[in-house]
């Protein structure tokens, strides 16, 4: 039910956006994420963008994973 998948915004239009996922384009609603722009990656849940993906923060997770690897090796 809470499944959500990352997609990229290719067009933005009022409360809608066109996103692309594996070459497939889909129109989605942007009510929960009105400030997102073309080029942003967003998480898609039941036809709505619910969260913006943040690359810098993703790096932090990777760093932590590395720490885990170092600790357990």
């Amino acid at each position: 039910m809470c499944l959500a998948i990352p997609t990229k915004i290719v067009e933005r239009d009022g409360s809608d956006a066109l996103v692309e996922m594996n070459g497939v384009r889909q129109r989605i609603r942007m009510d929960l994420l009105p400030a997102a722009r073309v080029g942003d990656y967003v998480l898609l849940h039941a036809g709505f963008a619910i969260a913006l993906l943040n690359e810098e923060e993703a790096q932090e997770t990777l760093d932590l994973l590395r720490e885990v690897e170092v600790l357990s090796s």
């Binding site: 039910m1 809470c2 009510d31 039941a46």
Partner: peptide, 11 residues
């Protein structure tokens, strides 16, 4: 649905 889905319905 939980809090993930409810805001969609609100919209």
């Amino acid at each position: 649905g939980f809090e993930t889905t409810a805001p969609l319905i609100a919209a």
